[in-house]
Protein backbone atom coordinates (compact mmCIF):
# COMPACT_ATOMS: atom_id res chain seq x y z
CA UNK A 1 0.00 0.00 0.00
CA UNK A 2 1.62 3.15 -1.18
CA UNK A 3 -1.45 5.26 -0.77
CA UNK A 4 -0.74 8.69 0.62
CA UNK A 5 -1.95 9.10 4.21
CA UNK A 6 -4.73 11.66 4.30
CA UNK A 7 -4.81 13.22 7.75
CA UNK A 8 -8.02 14.51 9.28
CA UNK A 9 -7.53 17.97 10.65
CA UNK A 10 -10.06 19.96 12.63
CA UNK A 11 -9.80 23.74 12.64
CA UNK A 12 -11.58 25.67 15.37
CA UNK A 13 -11.86 29.23 14.13
CA UNK A 14 -13.48 32.45 15.24
CA UNK A 15 -16.15 33.80 12.95
CA UNK A 16 -14.91 37.40 12.77
CA UNK A 17 -11.33 36.86 11.63
CA UNK A 18 -10.16 33.41 10.66
CA UNK A 19 -13.50 32.27 9.28
CA UNK A 20 -13.67 35.43 7.23
CA UNK A 21 -10.07 34.75 6.18
CA UNK A 22 -11.12 31.28 5.05
CA UNK A 23 -13.99 32.87 3.17
CA UNK A 24 -11.55 35.20 1.45
CA UNK A 25 -9.36 32.24 0.50
CA UNK A 26 -12.46 30.70 -1.08
CA UNK A 27 -13.64 33.77 -2.94
CA UNK A 28 -10.07 34.41 -4.13
CA UNK A 29 -10.15 30.89 -5.62
CA UNK A 30 -7.10 29.85 -3.60
CA UNK A 31 -6.68 26.11 -3.53
CA UNK A 32 -5.85 24.43 -0.23
CA UNK A 33 -5.76 20.93 1.23
CA UNK A 34 -9.22 19.41 1.62
CA UNK A 35 -8.21 17.60 4.82
CA UNK A 36 -9.28 20.47 7.03
CA UNK A 37 -12.74 20.53 8.64
CA UNK A 38 -13.65 23.94 9.91
CA UNK A 39 -15.69 24.49 13.04
CA UNK A 40 -16.85 28.08 13.29
CA UNK A 41 -17.24 29.67 16.70
CA UNK A 42 -18.18 33.17 17.87
CA UNK A 43 -14.73 33.92 19.33
CA UNK A 44 -11.48 32.19 20.27
CA UNK A 45 -12.54 32.77 23.86
CA UNK A 46 -15.35 30.30 23.16
CA UNK A 47 -12.91 27.56 22.21
CA UNK A 48 -12.92 25.33 25.24
CA UNK A 49 -10.03 22.89 25.71
CA UNK A 50 -12.79 20.27 25.75
CA UNK A 51 -13.20 20.86 22.01
CA UNK A 52 -9.60 19.81 21.43
CA UNK A 53 -10.05 16.65 23.48
CA UNK A 54 -13.33 15.92 21.71
CA UNK A 55 -11.71 16.25 18.29
CA UNK A 56 -8.98 13.83 19.35
CA UNK A 57 -11.62 11.50 20.78
CA UNK A 58 -13.35 11.47 17.40
CA UNK A 59 -10.12 10.54 15.63
CA UNK A 60 -8.54 13.80 14.50
CA UNK A 61 -4.85 13.59 13.57
CA UNK A 62 -4.23 17.28 13.88
CA UNK A 63 -5.94 20.35 15.27
CA UNK A 64 -5.71 24.01 14.42
CA UNK A 65 -7.03 26.78 16.61
CA UNK A 66 -7.15 30.18 15.07
CA UNK A 67 -8.57 33.60 15.72
CA UNK A 68 -8.06 37.34 15.50
CA UNK A 69 -4.69 38.96 16.02
CA UNK A 70 -4.19 40.53 19.46
CA UNK A 71 -6.06 43.80 19.56
CA UNK A 72 -8.44 42.81 16.77
CA UNK A 73 -10.95 40.79 18.77
CA UNK A 74 -14.57 41.67 18.04
CA UNK A 75 -15.23 41.30 21.77
CA UNK A 76 -12.08 43.33 22.57
CA UNK A 77 -10.29 40.73 24.71
CA UNK A 78 -11.59 37.22 23.99
CA UNK A 79 -8.36 36.27 22.24
CA UNK A 80 -6.20 37.51 25.14
CA UNK A 81 -8.03 35.19 27.50
CA UNK A 82 -7.78 32.38 24.97
CA UNK A 83 -4.04 32.92 24.57
CA UNK A 84 -3.40 32.36 28.29
CA UNK A 85 -5.60 29.34 28.34
CA UNK A 86 -3.82 27.81 25.35
CA UNK A 87 -0.45 28.41 26.86
CA UNK A 88 -1.36 26.44 29.96
CA UNK A 89 -3.28 23.79 28.05
CA UNK A 90 -0.46 23.37 25.59
CA UNK A 91 2.00 22.64 28.40
CA UNK A 92 -0.44 20.13 29.84
CA UNK A 93 -0.88 18.31 26.54
CA UNK A 94 2.86 18.27 26.05
CA UNK A 95 3.37 16.83 29.53
CA UNK A 96 0.81 14.07 29.02
CA UNK A 97 2.40 13.05 25.73
CA UNK A 98 0.11 14.62 23.14
CA UNK A 99 2.75 16.13 20.83
CA UNK A 100 2.54 19.86 20.30
CA UNK A 101 3.13 19.32 16.57
CA UNK A 102 -0.43 18.01 16.36
CA UNK A 103 -2.11 20.97 18.01
CA UNK A 104 -1.31 24.28 16.34
CA UNK A 105 -2.38 27.81 17.08
CA UNK A 106 -2.47 30.81 14.79
CA UNK A 107 -3.75 34.33 14.32
CA UNK A 108 -5.35 34.88 10.92
CA UNK A 109 -7.23 38.07 10.14
CA UNK A 110 -10.11 38.51 7.72
CA UNK A 111 -7.66 39.95 5.18
CA UNK A 112 -5.24 37.03 5.30
CA UNK A 113 -6.86 34.58 2.89
CA UNK A 114 -3.45 33.72 1.51
CA UNK A 115 -2.03 33.00 4.96
CA UNK A 116 -5.02 30.75 5.67
CA UNK A 117 -4.54 28.70 2.52
CA UNK A 118 -0.77 28.42 3.04
CA UNK A 119 -1.19 27.39 6.66
CA UNK A 120 -3.75 24.72 5.81
CA UNK A 121 -1.35 23.29 3.24
CA UNK A 122 1.66 23.34 5.51
CA UNK A 123 -0.22 21.84 8.47
CA UNK A 124 -1.61 19.07 6.29
CA UNK A 125 1.90 18.31 5.05
CA UNK A 126 3.34 18.33 8.58
CA UNK A 127 0.67 16.00 9.93
CA UNK A 128 1.02 13.75 6.91
CA UNK A 129 4.70 13.38 7.73
CA UNK A 130 3.90 12.59 11.37
CA UNK A 131 1.41 9.95 10.28
CA UNK A 132 -1.81 9.00 12.03
CA UNK A 133 -2.02 9.56 15.78
CA UNK A 134 -1.70 5.84 16.45
CA UNK A 135 -1.32 6.02 20.20
CA UNK A 136 -4.59 7.90 20.62
CA UNK A 137 -6.37 5.80 18.03
CA UNK A 138 -5.44 2.66 19.97
CA UNK A 139 -7.27 4.13 22.95
CA UNK A 140 -10.33 4.90 20.81
CA UNK A 141 -10.32 1.34 19.55
CA UNK A 142 -10.17 -0.02 23.07
CA UNK A 143 -13.32 1.95 23.92
CA UNK A 144 -15.19 0.43 21.01
CA UNK A 145 -14.18 -3.15 21.82
CA UNK A 146 -16.68 -5.27 23.76
CA UNK A 147 -16.11 -5.41 27.49
CA UNK A 148 -13.83 -8.12 28.81
CA UNK A 149 -13.76 -9.46 32.33
Amino acid sequence: MNELFEPEIVAFVCTYCTYAGADLAGTSRLKYAPNVRIVRLPCTGRISPMFILKALQKGADGILISGCHPGDCHFTHGNYHARRRWMVFRALLEFTGIPSERVKYSWISAAEGGKFADLMNSITEDIRKLGPFDQYKALIKETEAPATF
Partner: peptide
Protein backbone atom coordinates in the same frame (compact mmCIF):
# COMPACT_ATOMS: atom_id res chain seq x y z
CA UNK B 1 -21.02 14.17 27.04
CA UNK B 2 -17.50 15.53 26.92
CA UNK B 3 -15.73 12.76 28.76
CA UNK B 4 -16.33 9.05 28.30
CA UNK B 5 -17.86 7.74 31.51
CA UNK B 6 -16.71 4.13 31.19
CA UNK B 7 -13.36 3.48 32.80
CA UNK B 8 -11.60 2.84 29.52
CA UNK B 9 -8.20 4.48 29.28
CA UNK B 10 -9.46 7.05 26.76
CA UNK B 11 -12.03 8.48 29.15
CA UNK B 12 -9.55 8.26 32.01
CA UNK B 13 -7.05 10.23 29.97
CA UNK B 14 -9.60 12.91 29.22
CA UNK B 15 -10.82 13.11 32.80
CA UNK B 16 -7.34 13.50 34.20
CA UNK B 17 -6.38 16.14 31.64
CA UNK B 18 -9.53 18.12 32.37
CA UNK B 19 -9.03 17.83 36.11
CA UNK B 20 -5.44 19.02 35.84
CA UNK B 21 -6.44 21.89 33.56
CA UNK B 22 -9.19 23.08 35.90
CA UNK B 23 -6.65 23.11 38.73
CA UNK B 24 -3.97 24.97 36.77
CA UNK B 25 -3.02 28.05 38.71
Amino acid sequence: QWVNTSSHTLGNFEWNIVRAFHLSG
